[in-house]
Design a protein around this nucleic acid. Structure first.
Length: 638
RNA sequence: GGCGAAGUAGCUCAGUUGGUUAGAGCAUGCGGCUCAUAUCCGCAGAGUCCGGGGUUCAAGUCCCUGCUUCGCUACCA
């Protein structure tokens, strides 16, 4: 039976330059793809850019260029990053590629014809500045967060995708395929989300608002929007529907994504596939975020966090190793230079690099570089074959469980075993005793074989280093550069009689300045983070007044809302406030508080709220604002 | 508010279906070796396994409860 595997990264949205997160997604997917290759699979590996939508249009306008020209430019940055990261993809797809556009249209037609796309109008809060709708909860004090203006209620018609129809099916699919979403916590997160009724997905934008997109095949006046366009890339890249690649690879698809986009991938995408009558992809591997130190640090430590710079500074293999080793797959991790330097010095330079160096140096010193081979009679005493096999098995097992960092530690345990083995067998002592020459030869040969195994196992994470070691051991490298696990495993492959060069340094140690420059005084960050700066003019738009609460009652169905009548001098307002956890109605009556008086009216739990009262929030407690003196209701607050 | 994840040595994390004195790596201290990139090997370290209850012959591991952090979600005005 053929072993095929299809691996994808997310397609990146080129509204900004590539950063650590992009680099990680690409590298982990590449790492996994390379592992699957050495595990004997025929792998198809896809990455690309998602180029339609508002933000691209806006970014292009800023640079006074067209969306396509802008997308070309940024997409190129993403493409250029790949070789720097040693990522080897089979295709780089762009959602502006003609074949992709054709497939999106075909997909839309298919679902439209089957009746799962319908036309409907709805009302919403629309900001003309942003040219987009806002949910109420996205607004900041009722205003558009970008423009500080109150959005207007407008009516619009659009096409909707009947996701709700497939909710039950999806829950069942996720439940009955435990491997579908990895790791487990994200599977639970999705199932928890699916406990609530799913809303249908709006999949279009009228061309009056957005033209930079793919025109709907069934309505010339609309383009399709975001996810419906983007997700389809995974099949259009395979030449859906007719290409053999689609038939071969699609059922084996494994998507790597960051945790912020599990909903589109874990919910929209399988439902889209189901609605179109296509097989569901095999699974989703969700990873966490890299917390990158934002604050400036002293020059001596440096603060290199741009993936391109990090690669330049420490080398691509070290960077890849660090990312794979340091992050527990699925969880967040910290990226600091201290951490990467520590990994390089201890794991790469001291453990692996030095092992490689001492073994080949000894072979050079004692046998002039000539490979002696091991006397089988001494195997019982010296063989490392079982330790190597154990490493291969543990590595494979961890990889199969998405425990990538454990895959690394499995290899490093073997490296440690070999360092210990040298200490135990003391080749330098064997060298002094002429009767022990065959023992010395055996020890060195076992170690070289161990290094050969290590080279194979690290080749997915550090392709260059894997090849360096392999070549240094006098082995030829297959044309595709791939040693499969099956070809790595057999013991005793290094030919005897050949002569090896003196070893090069694989990973130079990095000097750490003993006195770490005085850490910048720890400024406590605001929690929550401070909002964007505003001008006095913007602030002046908010009309704050003193208001006296004249009555208050609890809203029955709510657990925290109080309905207040507030005297503002000129008029009495009804204000719904979420302070019911901290105050009983009795406690607020008579209090004079600060009221946002020009806030657009809103409805909460069916009750009209004409303003908002200010309160400090301390943990879960709310503390009402107040005054030192006694203002009159309606007095302005500045 | 609801749902979920996490809280284990200075740091990063393991701890499987509850079972002997709670582990690893890094960092620290001491000792050893000398082939090697001042590397390697060994030894040491008194961790309230977040707190408090409970089940059990036995709990980091199960149950209840509280706290902290994070994520998703909501009636966050």
């Amino acid at each position: 039976m053929d072993k095929n595997y299809y691996i994808t990264t997310p397609i990146y949205y080129p509204s900004a330059n590539p950063h650590m997160g992009h680099a990680y997604s690409s590298i982990i997917a590449d790492f996994f793809a390379r592992f699957k290759k050495i595990d004997g699979y025929d792998v198809h590996f896809l990455t690309g850019t998602d180029e339609h939508g508002d933000k691209i249009v806006q970014a292009a306008e800023k640079e006074d260029t067209t969306p396509k020209a802008y997308a070309d430019k940024i997409s190129q940055l993403f493409q250029d990053l790949l070789p720097l990261l040693n990522v080897k993809n089979n295709r780089f797809i762009r959602t502006t590629d003609p074949d992709h556009i054709a497939v999106v249209k075909a997909m839309l037609s298919k679902i439209y014809d089957s009746g799962d796309i319908y036309f409907s109008s709805y009302e919403g809060l629309y900001c003309f500045g942003c040219e987009r709708f806002y949910q109420e909860r996205e607004l900041v004090d009722g205003l558009c967060p970008d423009h500080g203006k109150a959005p207007e209620t407008i009516k619009e018609s659009n096409y909707f995708f009947k996701m709700s129809k497939y909710q039950e099916w999806l829950v069942d699919h996720i439940t009955s395929n435990p491997d579908f979403i990895q790791p487990e916590q994200y599977r639970k997160e999705l199932l928890s989300f699916l406990k609530e009724p799913l809303e249908d997905l709006c999949i279009s934008r009228p061309k009056t608002r957005l033209t930079w997109g793919i025109t709907l095949p069934f309505d010339e006046d609309y383009v399709t929007y975001v996810w419906f366009d983007a997700l389809v890339n995974y099949i259009s890249a395979l030449g859906y529907p007719d290409d053999d690649r689609f038939k071969t690879f699609w059922p084996t698809a494994r998507h790597f994504v960051a945790k912020d986009i599990i909903k589109p991938h874990g919910i929209y995408w399988p439902i889209m596939l189901k609605a179109a009558g296509l097989p569901i992809y095999n699974g989703l591997n969700v990873h966490g975020f890299w917390n990158v130190q934002g604050s400036k640090m002293s020059k001596s430590i440096g603060n290199v966090t741009d993936p391109v710079e990090v690669t330049g500074e420490y080398g691509v293999d070290a960077f890849r190793y660090f990312l794979m080793r340091e992050m527990v797959f699925g969880l967040d991790a910290n990226f600091t230079e201290d951490a990467i330097v520590a990994r390089i010095n201890s794991d790469l330079a001291n453990d692996l690099g030095n092992l490689f160096s001492r073994v080949l140096s000894m072979n050079h010193r004692y046998f002039k570089g000539n490979v002696q081979g091991a006397d089988p009679a001494l195997d019982d005493q010296y063989s490392l074959e079982k330790d190597a096999a154990k490493a291969i098995d543990a590595f494979s097992e961890a990889m199969g469980l998405c425990r990538f960092h454990q895959g690394m530690t499995a290899v490093w345990e073997f490296i440690s075993t070999m360092n210990k083995y040298i200490d135990t067998n003391e080749p330098w002592a064997l060298a002094k005793d002429e009767s022990k020459t065959s023992h010395l030869a055996a020890v060195l040969y076992q170690l070289m074989e161990g290094l050969r195994t290590v080279a194979g196992l690290i080749s997915p994470v550090m392709p260059d280093t894997g090849l360096k070691i392999t070549r240094a051991l006098g082995l030829s490298v297959p044309e595709d550069g791939i040693f499969t696990l099956d070809t790595i495993r057999p013991w005793g492959q290094i030919p005897t009689g050949i002569t090896l060069d003196k070893p090069a340094i694989l990973f130079p140690r990095i000097d750490v300045k003993k006195e770490k420059a005085v850490q910048a005084p720890k400024t406590k960050p605001f929690k929550p983070a401070l909002k964007e700066e505003i001008t006095i003019d913007e602030f002046a738009k908010i009309d704050l007044r003193a208001g006296t609460v004249i009555s208050a009652e609890k809203i029955e169905k709510s657990n925290k809302l109080l309905k207040l009548q507030v005297d503002l001098g000129a008029e009495t307002r009804q204000i719904v406030a979420g302070i019911g956890k901290s105050y009983t109605p009795d406690q607020v009556v008579g209090k004079t508080v600060i009221v946002v008086a020009n806030l657009k009216e809103a409805k909460l739990m069916g009750e009209v709220s004409q303003g908002m009262i200010l309160a400090a929030s301390r943990k879960k407690d709310l503390i009402l604002s107040g005054f030192n003196g006694e203002p009159l209701p309606g007095n302005p607050v500045k």
